[in-house]
Write a protein that binds this DNA or RNA. Structure first.
Lengths: 226, 226
DNA sequence: ACCCTAAGCGGACTGCGGTCCAGTTTTGTT
DNA sequence: AACAAAACTGGACCGCAGTCCGCTTAGGGT
Protein backbone atom coordinates (compact mmCIF):
# COMPACT_ATOMS: atom_id res chain seq x y z
CA UNK A 1 0.00 0.00 0.00
CA UNK A 2 2.92 2.26 0.55
CA UNK A 3 5.00 2.02 -2.54
CA UNK A 4 2.54 3.51 -4.92
CA UNK A 5 2.63 6.63 -2.83
CA UNK A 6 6.34 6.96 -2.90
CA UNK A 7 6.48 6.97 -6.62
CA UNK A 8 3.88 9.58 -7.34
CA UNK A 9 5.03 13.14 -7.40
CA UNK A 10 3.16 16.32 -6.72
CA UNK A 11 5.39 19.30 -6.71
CA UNK A 12 7.71 20.78 -9.26
CA UNK A 13 11.31 19.96 -8.36
CA UNK A 14 12.02 23.58 -7.70
CA UNK A 15 8.64 25.19 -7.16
CA UNK A 16 9.17 28.70 -8.41
CA UNK A 17 6.94 31.00 -6.34
CA UNK A 18 3.98 30.97 -8.69
CA UNK A 19 1.95 34.13 -8.89
CA UNK A 20 -1.71 33.33 -8.46
CA UNK A 21 -3.71 33.93 -11.59
CA UNK A 22 -6.54 36.40 -11.60
CA UNK A 23 -8.81 34.32 -13.77
CA UNK A 24 -10.18 30.96 -12.76
CA UNK A 25 -8.75 28.77 -15.45
CA UNK A 26 -9.72 25.53 -17.00
CA UNK A 27 -9.77 22.41 -14.96
CA UNK A 28 -6.26 21.18 -14.49
CA UNK A 29 -7.07 17.58 -13.91
CA UNK A 30 -3.82 15.94 -13.11
CA UNK A 31 -1.90 18.67 -11.39
CA UNK A 32 1.18 16.51 -11.53
CA UNK A 33 3.29 15.81 -14.61
CA UNK A 34 5.62 18.32 -13.08
CA UNK A 35 8.35 15.80 -12.70
CA UNK A 36 10.12 15.53 -16.02
CA UNK A 37 11.81 12.37 -14.85
CA UNK A 38 14.09 12.87 -11.89
CA UNK A 39 17.65 11.82 -12.01
CA UNK A 40 18.12 8.29 -10.73
CA UNK A 41 19.67 9.26 -7.42
CA UNK A 42 17.14 12.02 -6.90
CA UNK A 43 14.27 9.61 -7.36
CA UNK A 44 15.81 7.20 -4.92
CA UNK A 45 16.22 9.92 -2.33
CA UNK A 46 12.66 11.08 -2.89
CA UNK A 47 11.30 7.64 -2.18
CA UNK A 48 13.53 7.27 0.88
CA UNK A 49 12.30 10.60 2.20
CA UNK A 50 8.64 9.75 1.80
CA UNK A 51 9.17 6.40 3.43
CA UNK A 52 11.02 8.00 6.32
CA UNK A 53 8.29 10.59 6.73
CA UNK A 54 5.63 7.91 6.77
CA UNK A 55 7.51 6.03 9.44
CA UNK A 56 8.01 9.13 11.55
CA UNK A 57 4.32 9.96 11.37
CA UNK A 58 3.40 6.47 12.43
CA UNK A 59 5.79 6.70 15.36
CA UNK A 60 5.43 10.25 16.61
CA UNK A 61 2.34 11.63 14.93
CA UNK A 62 2.28 14.28 12.28
CA UNK A 63 3.54 16.90 14.72
CA UNK A 64 6.80 15.02 15.20
CA UNK A 65 7.75 15.24 11.56
CA UNK A 66 10.71 17.57 11.56
CA UNK A 67 12.47 18.31 8.34
CA UNK A 68 15.76 17.53 9.98
CA UNK A 69 14.42 14.31 11.43
CA UNK A 70 13.10 13.17 8.08
CA UNK A 71 16.38 14.03 6.44
CA UNK A 72 18.32 12.14 9.06
CA UNK A 73 16.01 9.15 8.95
CA UNK A 74 16.41 8.98 5.18
CA UNK A 75 20.18 9.44 5.56
CA UNK A 76 20.11 12.52 3.42
CA UNK A 77 21.07 16.15 3.84
CA UNK A 78 18.52 18.67 4.98
CA UNK A 79 18.90 20.72 1.83
CA UNK A 80 17.78 17.75 -0.21
CA UNK A 81 14.44 17.59 1.52
CA UNK A 82 13.74 21.22 0.77
CA UNK A 83 14.93 20.97 -2.79
CA UNK A 84 12.58 18.10 -3.41
CA UNK A 85 9.47 19.26 -1.60
CA UNK A 86 9.85 22.98 -1.31
CA UNK A 87 8.82 23.18 2.29
CA UNK A 88 7.27 21.22 5.11
CA UNK A 89 3.79 21.64 3.74
CA UNK A 90 4.97 20.35 0.39
CA UNK A 91 6.35 17.21 1.98
CA UNK A 92 3.16 16.53 3.87
CA UNK A 93 1.02 17.16 0.83
CA UNK A 94 3.12 14.72 -1.11
CA UNK A 95 2.12 12.13 1.46
CA UNK A 96 -1.54 12.92 0.81
CA UNK A 97 -1.06 12.90 -2.91
CA UNK A 98 -2.01 9.30 -3.45
CA UNK A 99 -5.35 9.52 -1.74
CA UNK A 100 -6.05 12.86 -3.38
CA UNK A 101 -5.47 11.42 -6.81
CA UNK A 102 -7.69 8.48 -6.03
CA UNK A 103 -10.54 10.64 -4.87
CA UNK A 104 -10.22 12.76 -7.94
CA UNK A 105 -10.24 9.74 -10.21
CA UNK A 106 -13.28 8.42 -8.39
CA UNK A 107 -15.47 11.40 -8.99
CA UNK A 108 -14.17 12.10 -12.45
CA UNK A 109 -14.46 8.66 -13.92
CA UNK A 110 -15.43 6.21 -11.21
CA UNK A 111 -18.73 4.45 -10.66
CA UNK A 112 -21.94 6.20 -9.63
CA UNK A 113 -23.06 7.84 -7.49
CA UNK A 114 -19.69 9.56 -7.18
CA UNK A 115 -18.70 9.38 -10.79
CA UNK A 116 -20.66 10.39 -13.87
CA UNK A 117 -23.80 8.39 -14.43
CA UNK A 118 -25.74 9.57 -11.43
CA UNK A 119 -27.80 12.77 -11.46
CA UNK A 120 -25.85 15.84 -10.30
CA UNK A 121 -27.65 16.15 -7.01
CA UNK A 122 -26.76 12.65 -5.97
CA UNK A 123 -23.21 13.12 -7.13
CA UNK A 124 -22.88 16.24 -5.07
CA UNK A 125 -24.21 14.50 -2.01
CA UNK A 126 -21.91 11.56 -2.51
CA UNK A 127 -18.99 13.87 -3.10
CA UNK A 128 -19.39 15.64 0.20
CA UNK A 129 -19.75 12.43 2.12
CA UNK A 130 -16.70 10.96 0.46
CA UNK A 131 -14.56 13.98 1.23
CA UNK A 132 -15.92 14.08 4.75
CA UNK A 133 -14.82 10.57 5.52
CA UNK A 134 -11.54 10.78 3.69
CA UNK A 135 -10.66 13.85 5.69
CA UNK A 136 -11.80 12.23 8.89
CA UNK A 137 -9.51 9.28 8.33
CA UNK A 138 -6.43 11.39 7.78
CA UNK A 139 -7.22 14.19 10.13
CA UNK A 140 -3.85 14.76 11.73
CA UNK A 141 -2.01 14.65 8.46
CA UNK A 142 -4.57 16.87 6.75
CA UNK A 143 -4.31 19.39 9.52
CA UNK A 144 -0.55 19.36 9.60
CA UNK A 145 -0.44 19.76 5.84
CA UNK A 146 -2.55 22.90 5.98
CA UNK A 147 -0.53 25.73 4.43
CA UNK A 148 -0.52 29.31 5.60
CA UNK A 149 -3.89 31.03 5.16
CA UNK A 150 -2.84 33.00 2.12
CA UNK A 151 -2.29 29.89 0.03
CA UNK A 152 -5.06 27.73 1.39
CA UNK A 153 -7.36 28.13 -1.57
CA UNK A 154 -4.92 28.35 -4.42
CA UNK A 155 -3.49 24.85 -4.29
CA UNK A 156 -4.19 22.48 -7.17
CA UNK A 157 -5.95 19.75 -5.16
CA UNK A 158 -8.34 22.21 -3.55
CA UNK A 159 -8.96 23.93 -6.84
CA UNK A 160 -9.79 20.67 -8.52
CA UNK A 161 -12.36 19.78 -5.87
CA UNK A 162 -13.87 23.24 -5.95
CA UNK A 163 -14.05 23.14 -9.70
CA UNK A 164 -15.89 19.84 -9.58
CA UNK A 165 -18.43 21.21 -7.17
CA UNK A 166 -18.83 24.29 -9.31
CA UNK A 167 -19.60 22.20 -12.36
CA UNK A 168 -22.17 20.14 -10.52
CA UNK A 169 -23.77 23.24 -9.12
CA UNK A 170 -24.08 24.82 -12.51
CA UNK A 171 -26.26 21.93 -13.55
CA UNK A 172 -28.39 22.24 -10.47
CA UNK A 173 -28.81 25.98 -10.07
CA UNK A 174 -27.73 27.47 -13.38
CA UNK A 175 -28.50 31.05 -12.55
CA UNK A 176 -26.74 31.33 -9.22
CA UNK A 177 -23.18 32.44 -8.56
CA UNK A 178 -21.93 28.91 -8.56
CA UNK A 179 -18.33 29.80 -7.96
CA UNK A 180 -19.14 31.42 -4.67
CA UNK A 181 -21.59 28.73 -3.75
CA UNK A 182 -19.01 26.06 -4.45
CA UNK A 183 -16.36 27.81 -2.40
CA UNK A 184 -18.86 27.93 0.38
CA UNK A 185 -19.79 24.30 0.27
CA UNK A 186 -16.10 23.46 0.28
CA UNK A 187 -15.82 25.46 3.46
CA UNK A 188 -17.99 22.90 5.15
CA UNK A 189 -15.45 20.24 4.25
CA UNK A 190 -12.46 22.12 5.64
CA UNK A 191 -10.28 19.73 7.66
CA UNK A 192 -9.93 22.28 10.43
CA UNK A 193 -13.71 22.56 10.75
CA UNK A 194 -14.20 18.82 10.74
CA UNK A 195 -11.56 18.50 13.41
CA UNK A 196 -13.17 21.14 15.52
CA UNK A 197 -16.65 19.72 15.25
CA UNK A 198 -15.72 16.11 15.86
CA UNK A 199 -12.78 16.35 18.23
CA UNK A 200 -13.53 19.52 20.12
CA UNK A 201 -17.33 19.60 20.04
CA UNK A 202 -17.75 15.87 20.06
CA UNK A 203 -20.19 15.68 17.18
CA UNK A 204 -20.54 12.27 15.55
CA UNK A 205 -19.82 11.91 11.89
CA UNK A 206 -23.44 11.08 11.09
CA UNK A 207 -24.41 14.51 12.13
CA UNK A 208 -21.85 16.11 9.87
CA UNK A 209 -23.01 13.87 7.08
CA UNK A 210 -26.64 14.82 7.62
CA UNK A 211 -25.52 18.42 7.78
CA UNK A 212 -23.96 18.15 4.37
CA UNK A 213 -27.01 16.58 2.81
CA UNK A 214 -29.23 19.20 4.34
CA UNK A 215 -26.89 21.95 3.28
CA UNK A 216 -26.86 20.75 -0.30
CA UNK A 217 -30.63 20.57 -0.28
CA UNK A 218 -30.92 24.13 0.97
CA UNK A 219 -28.36 25.57 -1.37
CA UNK A 220 -29.94 23.93 -4.38
CA UNK A 221 -33.43 24.72 -3.16
CA UNK A 222 -34.33 21.08 -3.39
CA UNK A 223 -37.05 19.85 -1.03
CA UNK A 224 -36.15 17.18 1.51
CA UNK A 225 -34.58 19.43 4.07
CA UNK A 226 -33.92 17.06 6.94
CA UNK B 1 -8.40 56.50 17.82
CA UNK B 2 -5.46 54.54 19.06
CA UNK B 3 -5.48 54.88 22.77
CA UNK B 4 -8.72 53.09 23.44
CA UNK B 5 -7.19 50.07 21.82
CA UNK B 6 -4.10 50.10 23.94
CA UNK B 7 -6.07 50.02 27.12
CA UNK B 8 -8.37 47.16 26.36
CA UNK B 9 -7.12 43.72 27.19
CA UNK B 10 -7.93 40.43 25.63
CA UNK B 11 -5.82 37.66 26.96
CA UNK B 12 -5.24 36.32 30.40
CA UNK B 13 -1.86 37.50 31.69
CA UNK B 14 -0.49 34.00 31.57
CA UNK B 15 -2.81 32.13 29.26
CA UNK B 16 -2.73 28.65 30.67
CA UNK B 17 -3.18 26.23 27.76
CA UNK B 18 -6.93 25.92 28.03
CA UNK B 19 -8.46 22.62 27.10
CA UNK B 20 -11.31 23.14 24.67
CA UNK B 21 -14.65 22.29 26.15
CA UNK B 22 -16.74 19.57 24.69
CA UNK B 23 -20.04 21.36 25.12
CA UNK B 24 -20.91 24.58 23.40
CA UNK B 25 -21.47 26.82 26.33
CA UNK B 26 -23.43 29.92 26.97
CA UNK B 27 -22.60 33.09 25.17
CA UNK B 28 -19.58 34.60 26.77
CA UNK B 29 -20.22 38.15 25.76
CA UNK B 30 -17.24 40.07 26.90
CA UNK B 31 -14.47 37.58 26.65
CA UNK B 32 -12.24 40.01 28.49
CA UNK B 33 -12.30 40.79 32.19
CA UNK B 34 -9.34 38.51 32.34
CA UNK B 35 -7.06 41.24 33.48
CA UNK B 36 -7.44 41.51 37.23
CA UNK B 37 -5.74 44.89 37.15
CA UNK B 38 -2.18 44.74 35.94
CA UNK B 39 0.57 46.22 37.98
CA UNK B 40 1.33 49.78 36.98
CA UNK B 41 4.55 48.99 35.16
CA UNK B 42 3.02 46.01 33.43
CA UNK B 43 0.16 48.12 32.14
CA UNK B 44 2.58 50.73 30.88
CA UNK B 45 4.60 48.10 29.07
CA UNK B 46 1.49 46.59 27.61
CA UNK B 47 0.45 49.90 26.13
CA UNK B 48 3.96 50.55 24.85
CA UNK B 49 4.01 47.17 23.17
CA UNK B 50 0.69 47.65 21.43
CA UNK B 51 1.75 51.06 20.26
CA UNK B 52 5.04 49.73 19.00
CA UNK B 53 3.29 46.90 17.19
CA UNK B 54 0.88 49.33 15.57
CA UNK B 55 3.77 51.44 14.37
CA UNK B 56 5.65 48.46 13.01
CA UNK B 57 2.61 47.28 11.11
CA UNK B 58 2.15 50.71 9.60
CA UNK B 59 5.77 50.77 8.54
CA UNK B 60 6.51 47.25 7.41
CA UNK B 61 3.14 45.55 7.10
CA UNK B 62 1.86 42.82 9.33
CA UNK B 63 4.48 40.40 8.11
CA UNK B 64 7.24 42.59 9.52
CA UNK B 65 5.99 42.34 13.05
CA UNK B 66 8.62 40.31 14.80
CA UNK B 67 8.31 39.64 18.47
CA UNK B 68 11.88 40.76 18.94
CA UNK B 69 11.31 43.87 16.88
CA UNK B 70 8.23 44.80 18.88
CA UNK B 71 10.06 44.21 22.11
CA UNK B 72 12.97 46.34 20.99
CA UNK B 73 10.73 49.11 19.67
CA UNK B 74 8.93 49.21 22.99
CA UNK B 75 12.26 49.11 24.83
CA UNK B 76 11.29 45.97 26.65
CA UNK B 77 12.64 42.46 26.92
CA UNK B 78 11.41 39.75 24.64
CA UNK B 79 10.13 37.67 27.52
CA UNK B 80 7.80 40.48 28.48
CA UNK B 81 6.01 40.34 25.16
CA UNK B 82 5.36 36.67 25.52
CA UNK B 83 4.33 36.94 29.13
CA UNK B 84 1.78 39.56 28.22
CA UNK B 85 0.35 38.17 25.01
CA UNK B 86 1.15 34.51 25.07
CA UNK B 87 2.34 34.30 21.51
CA UNK B 88 2.49 36.20 18.27
CA UNK B 89 -1.11 35.43 17.44
CA UNK B 90 -2.15 36.74 20.82
CA UNK B 91 -0.40 40.02 20.21
CA UNK B 92 -2.00 40.47 16.82
CA UNK B 93 -5.41 39.56 18.15
CA UNK B 94 -5.02 42.13 20.86
CA UNK B 95 -4.61 44.69 18.11
CA UNK B 96 -7.89 43.56 16.61
CA UNK B 97 -9.60 43.52 19.95
CA UNK B 98 -11.01 47.01 19.75
CA UNK B 99 -12.77 46.55 16.47
CA UNK B 100 -13.96 43.11 17.50
CA UNK B 101 -15.56 44.52 20.63
CA UNK B 102 -17.19 47.28 18.67
CA UNK B 103 -18.69 44.91 16.16
CA UNK B 104 -19.99 42.75 18.93
CA UNK B 105 -21.55 45.69 20.71
CA UNK B 106 -23.12 46.79 17.46
CA UNK B 107 -25.00 43.63 16.79
CA UNK B 108 -25.81 42.93 20.39
CA UNK B 109 -27.16 46.31 21.34
CA UNK B 110 -26.69 48.72 18.49
CA UNK B 111 -29.23 50.22 16.13
CA UNK B 112 -31.10 48.23 13.52
CA UNK B 113 -30.68 46.56 11.15
CA UNK B 114 -27.59 45.14 12.86
CA UNK B 115 -28.85 45.31 16.39
CA UNK B 116 -32.08 44.04 17.86
CA UNK B 117 -35.16 45.73 16.50
CA UNK B 118 -34.98 44.48 12.96
CA UNK B 119 -36.38 41.13 11.90
CA UNK B 120 -33.87 38.27 12.11
CA UNK B 121 -33.46 37.88 8.40
CA UNK B 122 -32.45 41.49 7.95
CA UNK B 123 -30.15 41.28 10.93
CA UNK B 124 -28.45 38.25 9.50
CA UNK B 125 -27.97 39.96 6.17
CA UNK B 126 -26.61 43.07 7.81
CA UNK B 127 -24.34 41.01 10.01
CA UNK B 128 -22.66 39.30 7.11
CA UNK B 129 -22.16 42.51 5.24
CA UNK B 130 -20.71 44.22 8.29
CA UNK B 131 -18.25 41.41 8.93
CA UNK B 132 -17.37 41.28 5.27
CA UNK B 133 -16.34 44.90 5.16
CA UNK B 134 -14.66 44.93 8.51
CA UNK B 135 -12.53 42.00 7.45
CA UNK B 136 -11.80 43.60 4.12
CA UNK B 137 -10.50 46.72 5.79
CA UNK B 138 -8.10 44.88 8.04
CA UNK B 139 -7.18 42.06 5.73
CA UNK B 140 -3.45 41.82 6.33
CA UNK B 141 -3.81 42.02 10.06
CA UNK B 142 -6.67 39.55 10.10
CA UNK B 143 -4.67 37.13 8.02
CA UNK B 144 -1.55 37.48 10.07
CA UNK B 145 -3.56 36.99 13.26
CA UNK B 146 -4.93 33.69 12.02
CA UNK B 147 -3.89 31.01 14.51
CA UNK B 148 -2.91 27.48 13.63
CA UNK B 149 -5.78 25.48 12.15
CA UNK B 150 -6.47 23.51 15.30
CA UNK B 151 -7.45 26.60 17.26
CA UNK B 152 -9.17 28.55 14.52
CA UNK B 153 -12.68 27.87 15.67
CA UNK B 154 -12.27 27.78 19.41
CA UNK B 155 -11.33 31.40 20.02
CA UNK B 156 -13.74 33.60 21.94
CA UNK B 157 -14.28 36.23 19.22
CA UNK B 158 -15.13 33.63 16.62
CA UNK B 159 -17.33 31.77 19.01
CA UNK B 160 -19.26 34.90 19.85
CA UNK B 161 -19.94 35.62 16.20
CA UNK B 162 -20.93 32.05 15.50
CA UNK B 163 -23.21 32.04 18.49
CA UNK B 164 -24.94 35.15 17.27
CA UNK B 165 -25.55 33.63 13.87
CA UNK B 166 -26.82 30.47 15.50
CA UNK B 167 -29.35 32.40 17.53
CA UNK B 168 -30.60 34.29 14.50
CA UNK B 169 -30.86 31.09 12.53
CA UNK B 170 -32.90 29.41 15.19
CA UNK B 171 -35.51 32.08 14.75
CA UNK B 172 -35.49 31.65 11.00
CA UNK B 173 -35.28 27.91 10.54
CA UNK B 174 -36.14 26.42 13.92
CA UNK B 175 -35.99 22.82 12.89
CA UNK B 176 -32.65 22.79 11.14
CA UNK B 177 -29.26 21.99 12.64
CA UNK B 178 -28.54 25.64 13.26
CA UNK B 179 -25.15 25.07 14.81
CA UNK B 180 -23.83 23.46 11.69
CA UNK B 181 -25.56 25.95 9.46
CA UNK B 182 -24.06 28.82 11.42
CA UNK B 183 -20.58 27.38 11.28
CA UNK B 184 -21.06 27.11 7.57
CA UNK B 185 -22.19 30.64 7.06
CA UNK B 186 -19.22 31.80 9.09
CA UNK B 187 -17.01 29.91 6.69
CA UNK B 188 -18.08 32.33 4.01
CA UNK B 189 -16.73 35.17 6.10
CA UNK B 190 -13.34 33.59 6.69
CA UNK B 191 -10.62 36.21 6.19
CA UNK B 192 -8.55 33.78 4.16
CA UNK B 193 -11.44 33.20 1.79
CA UNK B 194 -12.15 36.87 1.41
CA UNK B 195 -8.53 37.49 0.70
CA UNK B 196 -8.43 34.78 -1.90
CA UNK B 197 -11.56 35.89 -3.67
CA UNK B 198 -10.76 39.59 -3.75
CA UNK B 199 -6.99 39.67 -4.02
CA UNK B 200 -6.28 36.50 -5.95
CA UNK B 201 -9.42 36.09 -8.02
CA UNK B 202 -10.09 39.77 -8.37
CA UNK B 203 -13.73 39.66 -7.37
CA UNK B 204 -15.23 42.98 -6.31
CA UNK B 205 -16.74 43.30 -2.88
CA UNK B 206 -20.22 43.79 -4.29
CA UNK B 207 -20.15 40.31 -5.62
CA UNK B 208 -19.18 38.89 -2.26
CA UNK B 209 -21.91 40.94 -0.68
CA UNK B 210 -24.48 39.69 -3.15
CA UNK B 211 -23.17 36.21 -2.57
CA UNK B 212 -23.83 36.52 1.15
CA UNK B 213 -27.34 37.78 0.67
CA UNK B 214 -28.09 35.01 -1.77
CA UNK B 215 -26.54 32.44 0.50
CA UNK B 216 -28.63 33.54 3.42
CA UNK B 217 -31.74 33.39 1.28
CA UNK B 218 -30.96 29.86 0.19
CA UNK B 219 -30.06 28.58 3.59
CA UNK B 220 -33.17 30.01 5.15
CA UNK B 221 -35.30 28.96 2.18
CA UNK B 222 -36.48 32.51 1.77
CA UNK B 223 -37.49 33.61 -1.74
CA UNK B 224 -35.50 36.39 -3.38
CA UNK B 225 -32.57 34.36 -4.50
CA UNK B 226 -30.39 36.90 -6.31
C1' DA C 1 9.71 54.64 56.58
C1' DC C 2 10.75 49.90 56.13
C1' DC C 3 10.23 45.17 54.69
C1' DC C 4 8.43 41.12 52.40
C1' DT C 5 6.55 38.76 48.74
C1' DA C 6 4.39 38.05 44.60
C1' DA C 7 4.39 39.90 40.17
C1' DG C 8 7.03 41.33 36.60
C1' DC C 9 11.28 41.53 33.86
C1' DG C 10 14.93 40.57 30.40
C1' DG C 11 17.96 38.28 27.70
C1' DA C 12 20.48 33.97 27.05
C1' DC C 13 19.14 29.68 25.08
C1' DT C 14 16.79 26.02 22.26
C1' DG C 15 14.71 24.07 18.20
C1' DC C 16 12.97 24.39 13.77
C1' DG C 17 11.99 26.07 9.11
C1' DG C 18 14.22 27.75 5.38
C1' DT C 19 18.45 29.55 2.49
C1' DC C 20 22.95 29.17 0.35
C1' DC C 21 26.77 27.60 -2.03
C1' DA C 22 30.96 24.96 -2.75
C1' DG C 23 31.67 20.49 -4.01
C1' DT C 24 30.03 16.00 -6.21
C1' DT C 25 27.51 12.96 -9.36
C1' DT C 26 24.84 11.99 -13.48
C1' DT C 27 24.00 12.13 -18.10
C1' DG C 28 24.32 13.64 -22.83
C1' DT C 29 27.87 14.80 -26.41
C1' DT C 30 31.83 14.24 -29.29
C1' DA D 1 36.70 7.30 -23.25
C1' DA D 2 36.90 11.84 -22.08
C1' DC D 3 34.59 15.96 -21.23
C1' DA D 4 31.34 19.69 -19.94
C1' DA D 5 27.02 21.27 -18.57
C1' DA D 6 23.28 20.46 -15.68
C1' DA D 7 21.36 18.51 -11.76
C1' DC D 8 21.81 17.19 -7.26
C1' DT D 9 23.84 17.03 -2.52
C1' DG D 10 24.94 18.15 2.31
C1' DG D 11 25.60 20.77 6.04
C1' DA D 12 26.87 25.32 7.75
C1' DC D 13 24.26 29.27 8.49
C1' DC D 14 20.34 32.61 9.48
C1' DG D 15 16.16 34.52 11.65
C1' DC D 16 12.39 33.94 14.43
C1' DA D 17 9.02 31.86 17.85
C1' DG D 18 8.85 30.37 22.15
C1' DT D 19 11.06 28.81 26.96
C1' DC D 20 13.59 29.39 31.22
C1' DC D 21 15.34 31.23 35.29
C1' DG D 22 17.88 34.38 38.24
C1' DC D 23 17.26 39.27 39.19
C1' DT D 24 14.37 43.56 40.02
C1' DT D 25 10.59 46.16 41.58
C1' DA D 26 5.96 47.53 42.89
C1' DG D 27 2.96 48.16 46.46
C1' DG D 28 0.33 46.29 50.62
C1' DG D 29 1.15 45.44 55.53
C1' DT D 30 3.10 47.04 59.90
Amino acid sequence: MLYAVFMSATLPPIPAPQEPVGEPELLQLSAAEDEPCLRADAARNRAALLEAATRLIAEHGAAGVTMEAVAAAAKVGKGTVFRRFGDRTGLLMALLDHSAKKLQADFLGGPAPLGPGAPPLERLRAFGVAVLYRTHEQLDLQLAAQPEPTRRFGLPPTRALTMHVTVLLRQLVPDADCELLARMLMGYLDPALIHHLTKQCGMPMDRLEAGWVDLVARVTCTPQSR
